[in-house]
Every structure is written in C-alpha cells, then in structure tokens.
Design a protein around this nucleic acid. Structure first.
Length: 489
RNA sequence: GGCCCCAUCGUCUAGCGGUCUAGGACGUCGCCCUUUCACGGCGAAAACACGGGUUCGAUUCCCGUUGGGGUCACCA
C-alpha cells in the first residue's frame, strides 16, 4: 500500500491523561475511504469532528479506510490529505491506514467466535441469493437465516469448505442509542441480522474494522454522516459482545443538492480541490459555509475558525438534511476575498496570469480595487487582465460603441488634458478629467465610459481614476491614442 | 416494500409554552450612493406542511396524515 511512519495503535491519547481530571478526554476521528476525492460532505464531517475535538481540547485522528484495495488509490489518499490541509483541519499524529490492522480485525473476529458471539457460516452464495429471492417473491423483508448459527459440531467434510464468520445478532429485545444529534433512537433487535465479520478470504468487513479500530484508537466520539445511523446498531453489537465501552454517537444529516436529493455528481458534486482550483474559492469561505450548513449560532454568519472552535457544539447541529446553496457560498467567498491580504491574493492568481516580478508588483497595488469586485479567484484574475494587456488592446464588441462618435471627440479632449497632467495620481487625474467634462458640458459618465473602454477594452472596471493611476502616464496615454488613430470597424 | 430519521420564508437558519403582528443571512425586487461594475446603506415581498389532542395559552409538547431523506451486500 503506502509507505509511512508506523502508526502505533496505542490505546487512548495517553499524553492527555495527566491533564484531564474527571471526564475522559475527547477523541474524534475522520475515516474516509480513499475511493475518490474528498467530497464536500466528507469535508463537513471532518470539520465537525475537528471542531469538536479542538473545542474540548481533545484529539482529532485521521484514519484512511483502505480495506477495499480494489477501489482505493494513492491519488485519492493524497487528494484527501491535501483537501484537509487546505481547509486547515490538522489531525493529531500520523494518519492511520486501516488495511494495516487486518490481523487485529481477524483476531477480534476469532475472539468473538471463541466467546460464542459469532459463528462460522458455510452458506454458499447461491443459497444466499436463493433465500433473498424467496423473500422478495413473498414480499417480506429479507433477513438472513443461517442454518449454521447454532450448529455446534461441524462435519469434517464441511470444515474444509469456505466460510464466513457472522455475528450472532441478539435476536430479541431492543437497542437504544442516545445520539447526540438525532436524539434517542430505538431499534428492535429482531431487525439486526447476522452480518458478516470476516469474509471467506479472511479479510475483515467494514463493520468489524471500524469498531475494532475505533476501540484501539481510543475514539470516544463517533461523529459521521447520517447514512451510518443504521450501521451504528450493528456496530454496537460488536462493541458490546467484546465488552468494550459504547462510544458516543453523533449522526450528522447529509448534504443534499438543490433539488433535495442526495448530493451527487449530477449536482456537480466536486472534490474540495475543485472548489479551490476550478471555482476559485478560499478555504475560509468553504469552511465557514460548511459550518453554517446544518449548524447555527444565533444570528452569526461570518465565523472565524477560532470562533468556531469556541462555539461549536453538537446540540446545535440540525436534524434534517440541508441543501447546498452555491450562491451563498460564493457570497461568503466574496466577503473573504475582500478581507484577504492583497499580497496573498496576488500570489494566488499570479500563476494563472503568468506574470513577471514587476507585473506582480502592479497586481498587488491594484488589488484593493480588484478584490472589491470579485466573488471568486477566477473573477479576480479576469478583472486584472486589463492591467497586463499588450497594446493595442482588444476592445469588446459591446464596448466599442462608446468610443465612436461623440465618445471619440471627448476622448481626444481627455487625451490632451491628461497629457498636461504632471502629477500622475488619482486626485490630479480626476481634476483633469472632470475639467474636460465641464468644459464640454457633459456628465462625467459620458466621458468616463469611453475612457474606460480605451483603457481596459471593457465597460466595467475599477474606478477610472484608479485605472489611470495604476496603468501609469505613458501606458494610459498610449492606449487612448491607439483608439483615436485606429478607425473604428 | 421493511426498518430508522426528519419537517420555520425559494435556500441556510434563530426560536427550546406566553417576548412571534416569527428574527438574521443568501437569493429576488425597489430606492439611495455613483464614472461602469462591485461594495455599502435603506426598504419590500417571502415561512411555522395538514389534522387532531395536551394546556388558560402552542412555531414550540404528544398522536396521526402527508411529504422528504437514509438504510436494507462476503462496499465502505
């Protein structure tokens, strides 16, 4: 699989033991399976686990559930780690890889077997499907009934055949989980079937692996997606059969697409890497959005990561699924772009603009004007394009009309006035341009638009005086002159 | 279909029996600011799914209906 420092499965976060007095220290974990990118729902689960641990001064662990070797890839693992780092979700210690604990999983399965809480089941796949089909034909719920459940002595001929180890489910009574998000949930034990612990090839199933790993890693709080709530009852059977302490469960509702159905590729469900690279979002915006999706703190909307750590709790996590609203995410992103450091933003978009050092300087200087207008980094980069365009600059079709007719005359007048400005800064430039407008008895807008088109090639841009100042005297006058000499097409 | 869960403006949510003629945010629509676009400011439309209870009093508690979601593998 993958080389990494040995992750010791030391029970509990022993480092904290001396400091914590009565309640046991909180240990949470995020346990993604590396079969794809870190999707947005996973990111939120990770965020909640991280926040809960940090809020309680506990430990946040990361475990890669790579037991399905056929579907797990190192590229997916890297994408997950990368996504978490980007979101600022640092995990404690080395990440764990579930595949490395197969022996331990098997050991527990056999312990269960010895203790009589599990049994070898020799049913063939054919027998299984036959049973399943019979159930659906009779329109009754399928629950496996293995003839091997209570067989004590197995014939020698049989023992040579392949078998799986199944848990002996309780059968009667009921199991209750006090879920920190969903509340008290009760399930009749008759609903819980004899699920597989160890496959016929000796590998552990997910159901077994999670429980064993959570126990060995000292996980106290299992915070995960709602889709695992049903599993929790089965997992609890293993926990109790082993005599281990129940973990605290918190099942967070899933994120849905705009149409209310589970978020999927159809909705453009993306990896967090796409939120960064393709959508041009800032990690603080994505984090803030994810936090507020399904959790609230009064009327607060803009919440920093440290505030989130202070405020986060499971009690205020909503119980119903929430829909993903991209508009709100982008609005938040606009806010964080405006808040962001100019140099940082310039560094973020410089690569896609392919700038020289000098040009980077200009970009930083222009940033206060540029960032006020962008909701994502793509818009930010687009907005900066005019600064680095080479003359004669291209003029948008729609913009061209502003530099024809009257506009052209005004532009000529502006050019002359600007050429006389000695102190090339916004205030002086404004004075000169306004002077022209007054003499020609036109509103400033009549002059500003042609000027904007000549300087940027577009009808929208930062304030025109800032544009002039940013571009500099020589470049500005040249761009205006270009328009004046070039006959309009 | 069985089991489990959920239900406040279009969306995210506040509300934890009277403070609700239901608050905030995004989005939408006006107006203001203004050289364009944004930003910002002001304002508007917009919700307690329905029906029964409990209670002096229900958005808040209980039951049912409807609607939505999750889950039913030798996948995780």
């Amino acid at each position: 699989m993958r080389a990494h420092a040995q992750a010791t499965m030391s029970p509990s976060a022993s480092e904290n033991d001396l400091n914590s007095v009565s309640p046991k220290p909180v240990v949470t974990r995020f346990a993604p399976s590396p079969t794809g990118f870190l999707h947005i729902g996973g990111a939120r689960t990770a965020l909640f686990n991280w926040l809960y641990a940090r809020h309680h001064g506990g430990t946040f662990l990361l475990r890669i559930e790579d037991t399905d070797k056929a579907r797990s890839t190192t590229a997916a693992i890297d994408a997950i780690l990368d996504g978490m780092r980007w979101l600022g979700l640092d995990w404690d210690g080395q990440e764990y890889y579930q595949s490395e604990f197969a022996a331990r999983h098997s050991e527990v399965a056999h312990a269960l077997l010895e203790g009589g809480a599990a049994y070898r089941c020799y049913m063939t796949p054919e027998e299984l499907t036959a049973q399943r089909e019979r159930a659906s034909a009779e329109r009754r719920p399928f629950r496996i009934v293995s003839p091997w459940r209570d067989v004590s002595d197995v014939s020698e001929e049989q023992t040579g055949k392949p078998f799986v180890i199944r848990l002996k489910a309780p059968g009667d009574g009921e199991t209750v989980i006090d879920d920190q998000v969903q509340g008290r949930v009760t399930v009749q034990n008759s609903e819980i079937d004899d699920f597989v612990l160890l496959r016929s090839d000796g590998t552990p199933t997910y159901m077994l692996a999670v429980v064993v790993d959570d126990q060995d890693m000292g996980v106290t709080h299992v915070i995960r997606g709602d889709d695992h709530l049903n599993n929790a009852f089965r997992q609890l059977c293993i926990v109790r059969a082993m005599g281990w302490p129940d973990p605290v469960y918190a099942h967070v509702p899933l994120i849905h697409g705009p149409d209310g159905a589970k978020l999927s590729k159809r909705h453009g469900a993306l990896g967090v890497d796409s939120y960064r690279d393709e959508l041009g979002l800032l990690p603080e915006a994505v984090g803030n959005y994810l936090l507020r999706l399904g959790w609230g703190h009064g009327d607060d909307e803009i919440i920093s990561q440290s505030q989130a750590i202070d405020w986060f709790d499971l009690a205020h996590v909503g119980k119903s699924p929430s829909r993903f609203d991209f508009k709100k995410l982008e609005n938040l992103n606009g806010h964080y772009i405006r808040e962001a450091d100019n140099q940082r933003l310039a560094d973020l978009i410089a690569p896609r603009l392919e700038l020289s050092e000098d040009q980077r300087g200009l970009l930083v200087r222009a940033m206060p004007e540029l960032k006020a207008r962008a909701h994502n980094l793509n818009q930010l980069a687009d907005g900066a394009l005019f600064l680095f365009a080479t003359r004669p600059i291209a003029v948008d079709q729609a913009a061209a009309e502003h530099v024809a007719g009257d506009g052209r005359d005004l532009l000529a007048a502006a050019h002359d006035a600007l050429a006389k400005v000695s102190n090339w800064h916004a205030p002086a430039l404004e004075e000169a341009v306004r002077g022209v407008a007054e003499r020609r008895e036109v509103k400033l807008g009549k002059l500003a638009q042609p000027l904007r088109v000549a300087l940027t090639g577009q009808t929208t841009s930062p304030g025109i005086f800032d544009v002039l100042a940013l571009l500099g005297r020589e470049e500005s006058l040249a761009r205006i002159a270009d328009i004046l000499v070039e006959p309009n097409e």
